[in-house]
Simulated scan of single mutants.
Amino acid sequence: MQIQRIFSGAAWESKVGYCRGLRVGNQIYISGTAPIDATGGVFAPGDAYAQAKRCFEIIQQALQELNADLSNVVRTRMFVTDISQWAEFGKAHQEFLGENPPVATMVEVKSLIDPAMLIEIEVDALVNTEDN
């Protein structure tokens, strides 16, 4: 079975040994996606909503590179450093995925790779292989 991998160019990919996204048949897996700006820094430090939106923008681009879109997402996992901001994270989730709601998990974690990051999101998606 053919495996298609895509990379975002983030320095962590080569240091840690992972890819942004992977497609096997009709299954797509997008790695934990942090709120990174165009220069590799943390996007919108302290802003839970803006960081979640940025994660979904990066995820959306990765899905497109794998011939899919947000409507194909079937599961999201949100790792957050402050669960009390759940509504801000959830608002971004609803805006990007509300028309085709996936199953979702949000859990609080002690920390992420950079202390300024408030959220990291990973997704799984399924595509109709007859269409793609």
Rank of each mutant, 00 (worst) to 15 (best):
A10C: 12
G41F: 09
I30D: 04
A50Y: 01
Q27G: 07
K110T: 15
A10M: 08
T81Q: 08
A52N: 03
I119L: 01
V80F: 07
T39P: 02
V127G: 02
Y49V: 02
V24A: 10
E95A: 15
W86D: 04
C55D: 01
V74N: 08
S8Q: 09
E108F: 08
E108P: 11
Q85K: 14
F89M: 08
A38Q: 12
H93P: 02
G46Q: 07
A11M: 11
N67C: 13
I121D: 03
G98D: 10
S14K: 14
L112S: 09
F89Y: 14
Y29G: 01
V80P: 04
I83Q: 14
F7D: 07
A11L: 11
G40P: 10
K53D: 12
G25K: 11
Q61I: 09
V73M: 09
T76H: 07
R5M: 14
F43K: 04
Q61A: 15
G21M: 05
D114K: 10
Q94V: 12
C55N: 08
G98R: 14
N100K: 11
D131I: 10
G32I: 00
I121H: 03
N132A: 11
P35Y: 04
G41Y: 09
N72G: 07
A52D: 04
T129K: 08
I121C: 09
I6L: 10
Q51W: 07
G41V: 04
M1G: 11
T105R: 08
A50H: 06
E65T: 05
V42I: 13
K91A: 15
S111W: 01
R20M: 13
N132D: 10
M78W: 03
Q94R: 11
N67R: 13
T105C: 13
C19S: 13
S71G: 12
P45R: 12
M78I: 06
V80L: 01
E65Y: 12
P101I: 15
S8Y: 06
L63G: 04
E57T: 12
S14P: 05
Q27P: 03
K110F: 11
I30M: 07
Q94S: 10
V42C: 12
A52H: 00
M78Q: 07
H93Q: 13
Q64N: 11
I113S: 05
L22T: 11
P35R: 01
V123N: 00
L70Y: 03
F43N: 00
F43D: 00
V24E: 09
R20G: 03
R23I: 13
S84F: 03
D114N: 14
Y18A: 06
D131F: 09
Q64F: 10
T39Q: 15
A50M: 10
Y29Q: 06
L22A: 00
R75W: 15
E95N: 10
A48G: 06
I113M: 00
E108L: 09
V107C: 14
S111A: 14
I36P: 01
V127E: 01
R23L: 12
I113C: 02
A125K: 02
E120D: 14
R5L: 15
L112Y: 06
A34M: 03
I58G: 02
L112Q: 05
A116K: 13
F89C: 05
I28Q: 06
Q51N: 04
Q60D: 13
